[in-house]
Design a protein around this nucleic acid. Sequence first.
RNA 1: GCCGGGAUAGCUCAGCUGGUAGAGCAGCGCAUUCGUAAUGCGCGGGUCGGAGGUUCGAGUCCUCUUCCCGGCACCA
Length: 642
Amino acid sequence: MPVVTLPDGSQRRFDHPVTVDEVAAGIGAGLRKAALAGRVNGKLVDTSYVIADDANLAIVTDKDADGLDIIRHSTAHLLAQAVKELFPDAQVTIGPVIEDGFYYDFAYERPFTTEDLAAIEAKMAELAKADQKVTRRVLSRDEAVTFFRNLGEIYKAEIIASIPEKEEISLYGQGNWVDLCRGPHVPSTGKLKAFKLTKVAGAYWRGDSRNEMLQRIYGTAWADRKQLEEYLHRLEEAEKRDHRRIGRELDLFHMQEEAPGAVFWHPKGWRVFQTLIGFMRERQRAAGYQEVNAPELMDATLWQQSGHLEKFGESMYLTKTPDERLYAIKPMNCPGHVQIFKHGLRSYRELPLRLAEFGKVHRYEPSGALHGLMRVRAFTQDDAHIFITEAQITAECVAVTKQILEIYADFGFEDVRIKFADRPPKRVGTDEVWDRAEEALKAASRAAGIEYALNRGEGAFYGPKLEFVLRDAIGRDWQCGTLQVDLNLPGRLGAYYIDEHSAKRTPVMLHRATFGSLERFFAILLEHHAGRLPAWLAPVQAVVLSITERQDGYVGAVTETLKNQGFLVESDLRNEKVGFKIREHTLQRVPYLLVAGDKEVAAHLLSVRTRNGKDLGTMSPETFAERLRIELDSRGRQTVEG
RNA sequence: GCCGGGAUAGCUCAGCUGGUAGAGCAGCGCAUUCGUAAUGCGCGGGUCGGAGGUUCGAGUCCUCUUCCCGGCACCA
């Protein structure tokens, strides 16, 4: 005779087994209607689930994160049901919940079109309106396999075959459609009120590019219309942040057909790029790094020795010269830095030796992977290789980690996650060396006091790595920095130093990058700030504008003075209304607009307005310069606005 | 690389079933000298991504190809 304990601690006693639905009904008709599922002793179940023994029960509604997931999962089922009604020959496969929505993969003789999508969505609305009951039943493995085989659903039969023996096999039905599913699901299709199909795409069966391609339909689903509208609005806003769009609007860079995956930097974009390099250069110098520069093009034999040609060759650009030599354009900077290390005899006294380079590398990325500045074939790394003894690994890793996190904070990225990527299947070196490298990096992580998630099998081919992932203003994660412990390449490339006993020793090499790819980091900054780069990064920090030509002399003089102090300032003397000029420079995201009319000229002032439309009143050019200096030096932690 | 979609003026986009390319913004010229997100009038601007083909005739149809977009796979 079950006693059901509710989240508020109250208990209900029953003299017979009850369903979740019945308990909800006992509490109130409104709750019963809102109930999507139950959480019995922490486990999600259908509202039809029968509680036979004492249990804790929470009724799951659409206010619950789990409730929303159930809505999405059930909407995926609704999608599959609609597809089967419209295209009986399509075979169903899997339909999981993803962030903000769901997808379902189908095997079908042809790709679905956007017209199909509209028809499917309409059918889904119709089925939802019919408010069909969703029922669950359990079958044995053999029964289930036979059931789906008979329906011609060979993919489903294959999925069942891969379900562990001990797991129960449940089927969910609604109307005349049945799907294999773990559940739980909403009690009836009428609970699905706000959904939209968003796109179609190809996707490999079981995520393996050797398998056939299925037709994937993506959709989004929410508790109500309003949430759906908000989501669609969020998508639009995210699109406005797209760095490709901002790059064009602000005249920062462009790309063109003749150089796929490569960037043409315009003056303003390159200025920002140089600011990033200047900033990093300063930090690295302070931390004991020395900047070097290695050749872009080196004989292929060197890359053979390092293992790059074998493990990474598919992504390398090769070129044969008239003298019949085969060269490779560098895809990484490490072998070049090892050559610099090797030149001359190194003593243990020189370690750690930190060699840094803003190295431009070329990688032949798959055409389908290219994406604006985020994924290119030619990019610049803020790359450094630190040569150390094994005893120095921990201390150096701790120092690197600390600096990476400090630098991210300077850009306003405080929310940083760290992943530990261990040995990949395609690698050089013995397992014994990998054990040591992984242990060393783990020990260093502990010493640095950082927590990480394991990213299995994602290490570099020569060593394990820490990956630094930062979260931007709209909650997206970007992997940028990396720290790798390499016990393989120095030996392969013949690097050694002389230790305190005059013996030759192979150094350990740490690979580290903070921005990762400068191009990509630039793009992340643009999207993070929606183009409104902080003044210290902005290509133009202020524009001085006249109201009529009577102020031309004053505006010109003020502009010159500010420029001479190193500020990035331009003047706008065009014969246009001031409102027009304000609009243009605001759209160009210039942090400060300095207006000079007759009144300002007479009093030696500037009227200061921010790109966000805020009027900071008038101040002298000297005061503005002083305050801007503080803003730049503090990297935006203090602003002209105060 | 795979699946789908796309490429028309500097930008955003229209161009139905094949009949000889259009708008807004931007640009240029002229007028206007103006107080915080678009002053008015006028003018110029296109090998319709590239190469073949079908046709009396192709931006429109077919084939190939390049690049871009969205996914998938990949991302040392």
